[in-house]
């Protein structure tokens, strides 16, 4: 070493100093981010709410100068897991199925006796439609009267999102099952769904209630039916022309400028009047062992709901945002999930 050692140590020290500076500045950056909590609003929302919430973000920020609304989208179950499993702090949680909040959030937080939340507020509703494009097979023929026969044709490809991950997924199955009775077509569900999942999906009837049991991994045996994680992937496939028809929310189809066939209120899950009828279908999800979620989904009207987690950094602002969303939803804006009042929920 000798003389060389001295200069070595100097350079060594210098790089230590540089490294410390670097770490310090990273930490500082992290702190300064948290330094001004009063004007950042973290919103985690279901995918089908992203487009309307993006509009709401602009309007809310315009009426609340200095406020930064940050919106992040996932499937509804994953929205909740961001808070309950990943321990992330969010101000507003918005999901496409109100029953998910009590199921997953009415339980104590880690190292606390307080629950993640003890309330939720229903804000809007939606209905299922059959979305398609002008590339879809038989798009010139399809209409509200014959859609179930077109979807049953062997060369037509139908897509829906994974029922295990996405509320729109199990709702699609419910719609198809309800359609059997509506159109007096007792093999409809079989032709479009069960036949393409040999012996893994079972349908059983008890009294008026039909129960659809799903396997853990829903892998179709042929290419008639296509399953994807959620709307984004499904609609990419639809617009690419890989599938012909997708069962989607009306607001999503409208927001994406897709053509769609509206369905009768008795099967579209969008009307409070028919709640009893919807309740005749139950989907049992094939969750694996350690699952923390109720695997039985009963047919019920689509109701979107919001809540503020108990550990939200900015609950007052969150409250204001929720009020804004609720009042805007009540107006029934285009591309937004529909007003609860308008659909006789209130």
């Amino acid at each position: 070493m000798g003389e060389m050692g001295g200069s070595d140590r100097d350079t060594g020290m210098r790089s230590v100093a540089v490294a410390l500076l670097l770490i310090g500045s990273i930490l500082l950056a992290g702190c300064s981010d948290k330094g001004s909590p009063s004007n950042t609003l973290q919103v985690i929302a279901a995918g089908s709410l992203l487009a309307p919430f993006a509009e709401a973000e602009q309007e809310f920020e315009a009426s609340h100068p200095g406020v930064d609304v940050r919106i992040e989208g996932h499937g509804s179950i994953q929205v909740i897991r961001q808070v309950t499993d990943l321990g992330r702090k969010a101000d507003v949680i918005a999901v496409a199925d109100e029953s998910l909040i009590p199921d997953l959030m009415y339980r104590p937080m880690k190292n606390s006796s307080q629950n993640f939340t003890d309330w939720y507020q229903p804000i809007s509703t939606n209905e299922m439609v059959i979305a398609y494009t002008n590339k879809s097979l038989y798009h010139e023929e399809i209409g509200p009267e014959n859609w179930h026969r077109i979807l049953s044709r062997p060369d037509v490809r139908v897509g829906f999102s994974n029922p295990m991950l996405d509320a729109a997924g199990y709702r699609s199955l419910m719609v198809l099952q309800l359609a059997e009775e509506e159109y007096s077509d007792p093999t409809l569900f079989e032709t479009i769904v069960t036949d393409h999942f040999p012996s893994t999906i079972t349908v059983s009837a008890e009294g008026t209630v039909t129960t659809i049991s799903l396997p853990e991994i829903m892998r179709p045996s042929d290419d008639k039916v296509v399953i994807r994680d959620g709307s984004i992937y499904l609609l990419s496939l639809l617009t690419a022309g890989g599938i012909d028809y997708a069962i989607e929310y009306r607001s999503v189809a409208e927001g994406m400028n897709l053509s769609f066939i509206p369905l009768p209120a008795s099967i579209n899950l969008g009307s409070a009047e028919y709640a009893d009828r919807y309740n005749d279908v139950t989907v049992v999800l094939g969750f694996p062992r350690f699952s923390s979620i109720g695997s039985e989904r009963n047919g019920r009207p689509v109701v979107y709901a919001v809540t503020i987690p108990a550990n939200a950094p900015n609950p007052e602002l969150a409250r204001e945002f929720i009020e804004f969303i609720a009042s805007e939803s009540a107006k029934g804006r285009p591309g937004w999930p529909a007003s609860l009042e308008e659909r006789a929920f209130l």
């Binding site: 179950i77 994953q78 897991r81 994974n162 295990m164 999800l285 694996p288 350690f290 699952s291």
Partner: peptide
């Protein structure tokens, strides 16, 4: 990703 959604972290 799937198990994160269905069964948790």
């Amino acid at each position: 990703y799937y198990r994160f959604n269905t069964g948790g972290i």
